[in-house]
């Protein structure tokens, strides 16, 4: 279309005042769809789900890591992460399963809470600033923080907790990219 024709077509459109433009509601992807995990192997993802459920289970109506789909979110996050972080998780989940098989002849995902607690012994040690040397302990330290954050920052968690505590809205000032 030539410019004159285009301008003419624009002029023929009915004008819409800003306040008349309908406000459209959009959902975040997690709300309307299920994630497709692709970073972790099936045994590793199963172990991470079990670990997530142990670190932050659903308690008294507050969603836990599973309801918040924190393990699936971490699958996405780790897939985007630097190599050293990916190695920390892969080595840690491998160690988690290896210890479980050595002690109980089954994968971590299949352990009951009492059995799992033995494998998770490093989580009962006081936190120090020195980084753990043991890969499993280092992984558990990272996973604890990540599972808690991924859960507490989920829509599922915030929609429940914000009902009880106005300060838990999970809302903050976002700086838009500027061109």
């Amino acid at each position: 279309m030539k410019r004159r024709g285009f301008v003419g077509a624009l002029a023929a459109l009915p004008t819409v005042a800003a306040q008349d433009f309908p406000k459209l509601e959009f959902a975040v992807p997690d709300f309307g769809a299920d994630p497709n995990p692709k970073f972790f192997s099936k045994p590793h993802l199963a172990a991470l789900k079990r670990l997530g459920d142990l670190i932050l289970p659903a308690i008294n109506g507050t969603p836990g890591a599973i309801e918040a789909r924190a393990p699936e979110f971490l699958d996405f996050l780790l897939g985007e992460s630097p190599a050293d972080r990916q190695k920390l998780y892969r080595d840690g989940l491998e160690a988690l399963n290896a210890q479980s098989r050595r002690k109980f002849a089954k994968a971590f995902a299949d352990l009951d809470a009492t059995e799992a607690d033995q494998v998770l012994a490093p989580m009962h040690k006081p936190w120090t600033y020195a980084d753990p040397v043991d890969p499993l302990a280092a992984f558990l330290r990272a996973a604890k923080a990540d599972v808690l954050t991924a859960t507490a920052n989920s829509r599922e968690w915030i929609s429940v907790v914000s009902q009880r505590n106005r300060n838990a809205s999970g809302t903050a000032i976002y700086w838009k990219p500027v061109e």
């Binding site: 996050l77 809205s169 903050a172 838009k176």
Partner: peptide, 17 residues
């Protein structure tokens, strides 16, 4: 600058790794 809930961000507040 706008108010946004953290779950509305692509990386749930972790930021792009």
């Amino acid at each position: 600058r706008v108010l946004r809930p953290v779950y509305d961000l692509p990386y749930r507040g972790f930021g792009k790794p």
